[in-house]
Simulated scan of single mutants.
Amino acid sequence: MSLRFIPPAAALAVAMAVLLPAPGTAHAADFTVRSVEVPELKGVFGEVKSRTVVPARARIGGTVRSVTVSEGDSVREGDEIALVVDDKNALNLNAADAKLKELQSQLDNAKLELDRAQQLLARGAASQARLDTAKTQFDVATNQLTASEADRAVILQRAREGAVLAPADGRVLTVPVTPGSVVLAGDEIARVASGPYSLRLSLPERHAASIREGGTVRIGERGISQDKAGTPATARPGRIVKVYPEISAGRVMADVEVDGLGSYFVNERTLVWVEIGRRSVLAVPAALIRTQHGIDYVTLATAGGPLDVPVILGERFAGDDGERVEILTGLKDGDVISAAGR
């Protein structure tokens, strides 16, 4: 049996045909473009709100003697935040003390008369009627003294109610009075945001049927600019806890629950992305896109070999295998992107 000589160039071609895949065949790391459904997000501004804002009110009328808190201070329920003084309370207290001394003297005298009447009745020198009269006078004096002590206690309680107490734990938002201000009973001395805090959203009426309690939203970083807030792919999740049933001025309101709002200012705005529907898009992993001279390209695996195709990018979002980028134009469903070309 004779051996046929094979030229080196032909042998190399045969080896490459065996080892290399046929043109247009997808590699194991290649990506096949498929249409996927993604949430359609609408960017709106949410305002940080305290679910309850409780006013601390004056319980008596008078002059504000002192204010111990300022805007931004944290308070505990029952803390004294201001003191209201009514100068008439001191005068009424002096009058009540003088009245008590007078009634105490009358009571002492009635007690002496009662004792004397009892002694005289025992010796037969006085009648039962005199004893009854003395006993009645003693009882009247005792009751008057008790009533006067109760009146004095009311004056003391009114003076103690000059202390304005924090109605709940929270943060002081406003203090509209200063020492020396004259206030009436029921006037607002301070406003306390007792929380918990949530984001209040205001959406156009056309999206009212698209949002629901329990739905997920994306909250950007602190700030009202796009540069500071980031993108939906990097935003943290939040949950819609309440959708208000009343539409006002063409807007529907909703509250979003998210951790970490306690450090925000009340009424501070931040960017929020709300899901208002779903749409089909072509999306590819961000790692398969390269930018050259300001133009974005992907490399397709075609029958004729790798082909660089310019694309126009859309939104970025988080996929199962990392960040993905929406392709607006340049690709179609079923295209194979070559990872080797990247």
Rank of each mutant, 00 (worst) to 15 (best):
K135G: 07
G72N: 09
V84P: 03
A166G: 01
Q119L: 06
K49F: 04
R116C: 05
T178L: 04
V75Q: 12
A126C: 05
A82C: 07
E113Q: 08
G61K: 03
A125W: 05
G62K: 00
D139N: 15
Q157C: 01
L103C: 06
D115L: 06
R152D: 00
R116M: 08
V175K: 09
S105E: 10
P179W: 01
A126G: 09
R57H: 04
D79K: 07
Q118D: 12
A122Y: 09
T146F: 10
R76E: 15
I81H: 12
R51Y: 00
V164N: 07
G72D: 09
E161R: 07
L91G: 06
V54W: 07
D73T: 10
V84G: 01
V48F: 02
E102V: 07
Q119M: 03
N143Y: 14
R57Y: 10
V84N: 02
E102Y: 05
L103D: 13
R171Q: 14
R57A: 11
N89Q: 03
V67C: 04
Q119W: 02
Q128V: 15
V75A: 09
P179K: 09
G78V: 05
V48Y: 08
R171P: 10
V183F: 05
T136S: 14
S70G: 15
Q104T: 12
I81K: 14
A56F: 13
K135D: 08
E47P: 02
L165W: 03
V53T: 10
Q104K: 10
I155V: 15
T174I: 06
R123F: 01
V140C: 02
K111E: 15
R160D: 05
T133Y: 14
A168L: 06
G162I: 02
G72C: 09
G62Q: 00
A134M: 10
S127V: 11
R171L: 09
T174V: 07
P55F: 01
Q157I: 11
T52C: 07
Q157K: 09
R152S: 06
T174N: 09
P55E: 02
R59T: 02
D108H: 11
A98W: 08
A159R: 00
Q119S: 10
E149T: 01
E113W: 01
A159S: 06
G61D: 02
S66Q: 13
R59I: 00
R57C: 08
D132N: 14
R152Y: 05
T52A: 14
R57N: 14
D87H: 08
Q119F: 05
Q128W: 11
A82M: 07
T178R: 14
V164M: 07
L114G: 03
I155G: 03
L93D: 04
D79T: 08
S50N: 14
A166K: 06
Q128H: 10
L173D: 05
D132R: 14
S66V: 03
R130E: 15
A95L: 12
Q157G: 07
A134P: 15
V172Y: 10
G162Q: 00
A168R: 05
Q106E: 15
L103I: 11
D169W: 04
N109Y: 12
R57G: 04
S105G: 04
I60M: 03
L100C: 01
D139S: 14
Q157A: 15
V182Q: 08
R158Q: 11
D169H: 09
L93G: 06
A147F: 03
D139K: 07
A90Q: 06
D79H: 11
V64N: 02
G180W: 04
V154A: 13
N92I: 00
N109H: 08
